[in-house]
């Protein structure tokens, strides 16, 4: 990996990081995200999973915050702090997995629609526009209502409904890059589709895709919590959305149990806001027009 191209890319990445560091919002967001991810991964080591079980729950239902239960207890007497802690794992898992699926489909469709001419690309573009217009939540609800309930159904439902924006973005970027002379040179030297896409288009499109990805994770997490809230999530797994659903359906909200409502919601807001901040910072760094204009 010491070819000149890779050296150049490494320098570019270093430059990117230096510029990213000057963006305070992005840096805060990144810090918060790293902390949350580390805590979520370490959850089985630093907490007792037994506390999630309804049968072995030690508290009484809906206790307000106290020395023993810092954030009170839920309707089944489980610690809200513990539930929120473990809920982060589901939200992050679904958020990342759905994003990977969505960005993969979006990038593939975007590049293919831009690189190849003729009717296949016209049809692809038409389909993209069709799905772009449809409200993705309505489509995701439809998908997850007809499939077996579970985490991977949610991933699928969110992933296959949120790709059109990425596809549009990637297509526009691919068109810009393919109009440059060095692509023409590569074609003239006998480079095939695979070579042009893999060696020239993809590396140039990826930074933009990265910035877009961070924004998609945020909206995927919101979509996951919304679907769980509507009762479409995995009933055996605690997630922030399902906690809020229980809070409403068990009457805890009308009973005024604010400690049951605040932690999962705030967790969603903090995590999504962090992803948004990082995404916007990346966009500013990567998009020269934004940099010079503001």
């Amino acid at each position: 990996m010491t070819s000149p191209a890779w050296q150049r890319r490494r320098t570019a990445a270093g430059q990117l990081w230096r510029e990213f560091r000057t963006n305070r919002g992005g840096l805060i967001g990144l810090g918060v995200l790293v902390a949350i991810v580390v805590l979520a991964v370490l959850a089985p080591l630093i907490t007792d999973e037994g506390g999630l079980d309804v049968i072995t729950a030690t508290g009484s239902p809906l206790e307000p915050p106290s020395g023993e239960y810092w954030l009170g207890t839920d309707v089944d007497g489980r610690s809200v702090l513990l539930l929120t802690f473990w809920g982060a794992r589901v939200s992050l898992l679904v958020g990342f997995a759905a994003t990977i699926l969505s960005v993969f489909i979006g990038t593939l469709v975007g590049i293919v629609a831009a690189h190849f001419r003729g009717w296949p690309s016209a049809v692809l573009l038409r389909i993209t526009d069709f799905f772009l217009v449809l409200p993705s939540l309505v489509l995701a609800i439809a998908l997850s209502s007809v499939l077996t309930k579970g985490i991977w159904t949610i991933v699928l439902a969110v992933g296959v409904t949120s790709w059109p924006a990425t596809a549009r973005l990637v297509r526009a970027q691919t068109l810009t890059i393919e109009s440059r002379p060095y692509i023409e040179r590569a074609t003239a030297l006998g480079g095939g589709h695979g070579h042009i896409i893999g060696k020239h288009v993809l590396p140039a499109v990826l930074p933009l895709v990265l910035a877009n990805t961070t924004l998609v994770v945020g909206s995927s997490i919101i979509a996951e919590s919304t679907l769980s809230f509507l009762g479409l999530g995995d009933p055996t797994v605690v997630s922030w959305g399902s906690m809020l659903q229980t809070a409403l359906s068990s009457g805890s909200v009308t009973a005024g149990a604010w400690w049951y409502l605040l932690p999962p919601g705030l967790a969603i807001v903090v995590i999504v806001l962090s992803f948004t901040l990082v995404g916007r910072a990346l966009e500013t760094v990567l998009n020269p027009r934004l940099k010079a204009g503001r």
């Binding site: 945020g218 919304t226 809230f229 809020l244 909200v253 409502l261 919601g265 806001l273």
Partner: peptide, 13 residues
């Protein structure tokens, strides 16, 4: 960044 339903629940409480 706020899920709509949570905002609704907050207003309720």
């Amino acid at each position: 960044s706020v899920p709509q339903f949570w905002l609704g629940l907050l207003l309720l409480i």
